[in-house]
Every structure is written in C-alpha cells, then in structure tokens.
C-alpha cells in the first residue's frame, strides 16, 4: 500500500460486482465480508448487483429451514460503513421478475449500458 493511501490522501474508486444468488455458493457472503473489511480504508466504494446477484437483496429471506445464516439484514448496515452507492441492473431485475419493491435496501436502478460506463469509470473492480 502506498504512503499516500495510508495518509488517506489518495481515494480510489472501488467497484464490487455481485453476480451470484445468496445461498447456493459462498460468493455473495464472501463479497459482503470483503466490502465490510475494505470499508475501513475510506475509499470510494460502489456495489453493483447484476445477473443472479440481484437475488442477494431479495426481501423476506428466512433461512431457518435450510440451517444457514441469513445475511441479508447486513446489507442494511452498509450505510453505516459509508457504503452508500448500491446499483442494480434493470435488465437483470426484469429477467427475474423483480422490482425495487422486492429489495431490502434502497438502490439505484441502472441499465446495463449505464453500468458499463460506471465500471469504466472505476480504478479497481472486484467481481464475485
């Protein structure tokens, strides 16, 4: 890590792209943990939910029946970690019959073309 970054002078744009459904694989939870850990570094963080990643934000998840931890409430804590830029893909939502009313947090809906521009504008992209 550069000295500038340690002193907080250089702020980079970090984009986390979330593409997986929440419980069938470990990707969604791992991404969330990386975001929370990375939040300590005071960077400019954005999260995009595309493809099956939009299912991560589905309201009303109840996991007692599958004996796994329901981590969806943690997305509502992101704001307190100063992670406030959450985007979802309009095309991904439409393909899955979801609307913003289905989601557990406030998000900004973007077309895939708009997201492509947004990704272009980042310094670092992590994909899960």
């Amino acid at each position: 890590m550069s000295e500038e970054m340690m002193e907080g002078e250089v702020v980079k744009k970090f984009m986390y792209i979330n593409r997986r459904a929440p419980y069938g694989s470990i990707y969604a939870l791992e991404s969330l943990e990386v975001v929370l850990i990375g939040a300590a570094f005071d960077q400019d963080v954005s999260l995009a939910f595309v493809d099956d990643g939009v299912f991560e934000l589905k309201k009303d998840q109840e996991t007692a029946g599958i004996d796994m931890k329901n981590f969806s409430p943690t997305y509502r804590a992101l704001e307190m970690y100063d992670v406030e830029k959450l985007y979802v893909s309009k095309e991904s939502m439409d393909a899955r019959g979801l609307t913003v009313d289905d989601l557990i947090v406030d998000v900004e809906v973007k077309t895939d073309a708009e997201l492509a521009d947004l990704f272009d504008d980042q310094d670092v992209i992590f994909s899960f």
């Binding site: 300590a40 981590f71 970690y81």
Partner: peptide, 15 residues
C-alpha cells in the same frame, strides 16, 4: 439482532 453483524469499532462508536 437487527443487522446480523458485529460492528467494526468506528461503526459501533458512531451508532
């Protein structure tokens, strides 16, 4: 109970 996460110190302090 609400967020299913143990908060980082600075988040706890703020909250």
């Amino acid at each position: 109970e609400e967020y299913q996460i143990a908060p980082a110190v600075r988040v706890l302090t703020k909250a």
